[in-house]
Structure formats: C-alpha cells, structure tokens
C-alpha cells in the first residue's frame, strides 16, 4: 500500500474543474503530503459542479485533495486514493462492507460525505497492517477461517478493530451486538465472532 507512488505533487490551490478532471482522467491525482494544517470549520460554499480542498488523514498519512460535494468518503478512498480494501456493498448504510474508523469510531464510508471528513483521522483495513504483516484482527480472521467469499471481510475486520479499541475484552453478547452492522451473505457469523475473541487475545499479547 504505497499511496504516494505514481502520484503527482500538487501544491496549487484552486485547480480548475477542467484541469482537475483532466488529472483524474489520466489516472493520477493531486495528492500531496504538505505542511498545511487541517482547515478549521470555517464557512464554506461549494457549487454543485465545483470542488473544495480537504485534508484527509488516512492510516496516519495525510492527503490533500479537492472533492466534489457529492463524493462520499468511500468514493474518495477507492477511486481517488486507491485504497480499495474498503468495499462498496449496498450504498445505503445497511451492509457494513464500507466500514472505516473515523476518529476511532466505526462508521459507514458510503454514508459520509468526503467534504465532511475534512480533518478527520480515518483508518481503513490497509491501516491495520504492520508493514507486510497482518494486524491481530486480520490474523485472527485467518486463524478462525472467518470468511468464505471475503467481500465483507475488510468491513468486518475494521468493525472488530473499532470494537476492540473501545473494549479490549468483549464477551460474546457484546461482540454479537457490536458486529451487527456488518452483514455476511456467506453466513460465517459464528467464525467471525470467534475471530473477534481470538483478535482480543492477540491484541493483548502483542500490545499493539
């Protein structure tokens, strides 16, 4: 996951829509790691066909980019930051495939406007890796065989991570309740619940 590779440093503000879209069309994006501080919540007006500069902090890295009002955080993660671990499922806040952590809390990226994520700390499934090593929740999902087709898995993993950050030792009832916002059409729920228990053990033993 090297989100900076192949990206052009774009320090210019006020890119025109035409040149911006041209950039997008070329498969690259003005994603800059700059010293600009996260914008305060000042008054903002963005025309429907305009863009607005935002700073997203994703997996500890900082991305400055321009977003259209209608872009969701999911659109931006997948299509513009190339973080495709976060999945598009129902697009309506029901399935949980797009679960990310925003300021440590599990939320649906498909129901979050990118412009509203400005300045937030975002964690996706890619951010749970330790270099090339799986994080404890991912490791636990492998050990417990907690998926079949795997499509819902990134969302399940991130939801579990959010749960364990708030409660490092949840019981089964708590796990069932807190994982209820993530559907698995393969029905791997029992294994998922076991994986969350196993992840809690792994997290404690690795003190990440």
């Amino acid at each position: 996951m090297s989100e900076e590779s192949g990206k052009r440093h774009d320090s210019k503000r006020g890119v025109s829509r035409r040149s911006f879209l041209g950039t997008m069309g070329a498969g690259t994006l003005g994603v800059a790691v700059t010293g600009r501080t996260a914008p305060a919540r000042e008054a903002v007006t963005v025309e429907s066909d305009g863009t607005h500069p935002v700073t997203l902090r994703v997996n500890g890295r900082r991305f400055d980019l321009r977003v259209e009002p209608r872009w969701t955080l999911l659109d931006v993660l997948r299509d513009h930051l190339e973080l495709t671990g976060t999945k598009l499922g129902c697009s309506r806040g029901e399935c949980g495939a797009c679960t990310v952590l925003i300021d440590e809390q599990a939320r649906y990226a498909c129901m979050t406007l990118a412009v509203e994520a400005d300045g937030r700390e975002i964690t996706t499934v890619e951010g749970l890796m330790h270099g090339e090593e799986l994080g404890p929740v991912q490791q636990a999902f492998v050990e417990e065989d907690a998926f079949q087709c795997g499509y819902c898995t990134p969302g399940q993993v991130v939801a579990a991570e959010g749960l364990l950050r708030g409660n490092p030792d949840p019981d089964l009832a708590e796990i069932q309740k807190r994982m209820s916002g993530n559907l698995c059409r393969c029905g791997a729920y029992d294994h998922i619940f076991k994986a969350v228990r196993r992840a809690a053990e792994l997290r404690r033993s690795t003190t990440h």
């Binding site: 919540r41 000042e42 008054a43 903002v44 963005v46 025309e47 607005h52 209608r70 406007l113």
Partner: peptide, 29 residues
Amino acid sequence: MLPQFDYIRPGSLDEAVARGAGDGAVLHS
C-alpha cells in the same frame, strides 16, 4: 454516485437557519 448538490457549511447557527429556509435546501448532520 449521489446526485449533484451545492454544499454550504454556514459560519453560524443564524446563517444555517437562513440558508436552510432557502428553496431546495436540506439540513445535513
């Protein structure tokens, strides 16, 4: 993709109320 809309983040509650009263405006939290 969502349909297009203008996005306004008002500087104050008063402005939010004024903008929210406009034709075709909806509030978002």
